[in-house]
C-alpha cells in the first residue's frame, strides 16, 4: 500500500461522506475554526500594523513581539491552555491567533512603511487629514503586501488548526489523530490530503481577492 492507495481507499469509502464524522462535517468545522482564528488575528494585527506603519513608531517592539509569537510552540500552548481553561474552543483559538498575528502585523507594518513617500507627502500637502492619507493613499498602495501577510497567516492556520482534534474538537485533524491511535493510515492520509487541498484553495482565494481588490495602477507597478 502506498500513499495514493490510502487516499483512494479513504475517499472511496462511502461511510466517510456523511454523519458527524463525515468529510462535509469535518471540513465545515475546520473552515469554521480557521475563519474565526483569522478574523481575530486580523482584528488585532491589521489596525496595529497600519497604525505603527503609518506613524513609523514601535517597529522594534513589533519585531520583538513577532519573533516571540513565532517562537511559542502552538501545540504546547494548546496543551497549556487546555490545562488552564478546560474543554472548549478558546484553548484552540489562543495558539492559532498567536501564530497568525505576527505575519499579519509585521507584513502590514512593512507594507505601509515601504509606500513611496512622495505621493504621501503630496497628499499631506494637499491638506488631507491623516486618516485619509492612510486609507486613501497608503493602504491602496500597500494592499498587495498586506494581503500576502494575511495569506501566509491563513495557510499556517489551515495546517495548524488540525491540533484542535487533540483536545477532542472536530475539524480535519480528527482524521489524523484518530488514524494515529487506530493505526488507520487511510484516515491519516485522507485527512492530510484534505488539509493540503484546503491550503491550496486558500491560496487561490487570496489570489482572486488580490486580482479584484488591488487597483490596476498598483498592480502594474509590479511588486512581483
Amino acid at each position: 500500500m502506498n500513499v495514493l492507495d490510502f487516499a483512494r481507499a479513504f475517499f472511496g469509502d462511502g461511510a466517510h461522506w456523511h454523519g458527524y464524522d463525515g468529510i462535509p462535517t469535518r471540513f465545515a468545522e475546520h473552515i469554521g475554526y480557521c475563519l474565526e482564528a483569522l478574523a481575530i488575528a486580523a482584528a488585532i494585527g491589521l489596525p496595529v500594523g497600519l497604525l505603527t506603519g503609518h506613524t513609523g513608531r514601535g517597529g522594534n517592539a513589533l519585531a520583538f513581539l513577532a519573533t516571540a509569537g513565532r517562537a511559542l510552540p502552538s501545540f504546547g500552548l494548546l496543551v497549556l491552555m487546555f490545562i488552564w481553561i478546560g474543554l472548549g474552543l478558546l484553548p484552540v483559538m489562543i495558539p492559532l491567533v498567536v501564530l497568525a498575528v505576527p505575519p499579519i502585523l509585521v507584513t502590514t507594518y512593512e507594507a505601509v512603511r515601504s509606500v513611496d513617500p512622495s505621493p504621501v507627502d503630496a497628499a499631506r500637502g494637499m491638506g488631507m487629514p491623516e486618516t485619509r492619507v492612510l486609507f486613501q493613499v497608503e493602504v491602496p498602495v500597500a494592499l498587495p503586501l498586506i494581503l500576502s501577510g494575511l495569506r501566509t497567516a491563513a495557510v499556517q492556520i489551515v495546517s495548524t488548526a488540525t491540533i484542535a482534534a487533540y483536545v477532542s474538537l472536530g475539524g480535519l485533524g480528527r482524521y489524523i489523530i484518530d488514524g494515529l491511535y487506530q493505526k488507520d493510515y487511510e484516515k491519516v492520509v485522507g485527512g492530510a490530503t484534505l488539509v493540503a487541498g484546503l491550503a491550496l484553495v486558500t491560496l487561490a482565494v487570496f489570489w482572486a481577492v488580490s486580482r479584484l481588490a488591488v487597483s490596476p495602477g498598483v498592480r502594474r507597478g509590479g511588486r512581483g
Partner: peptide, 16 residues
C-alpha cells in the same frame, strides 16, 4: 447520537 474522541480515561475524559 455521536462519538467524541477524548483520551484513554485521562484528563480530557474527566473534563468532558
Amino acid at each position: 447520537k455521536s462519538f467524541k474522541a477524548l483520551d484513554t480515561g485521562g484528563p480530557l475524559t474527566l473534563a468532558a
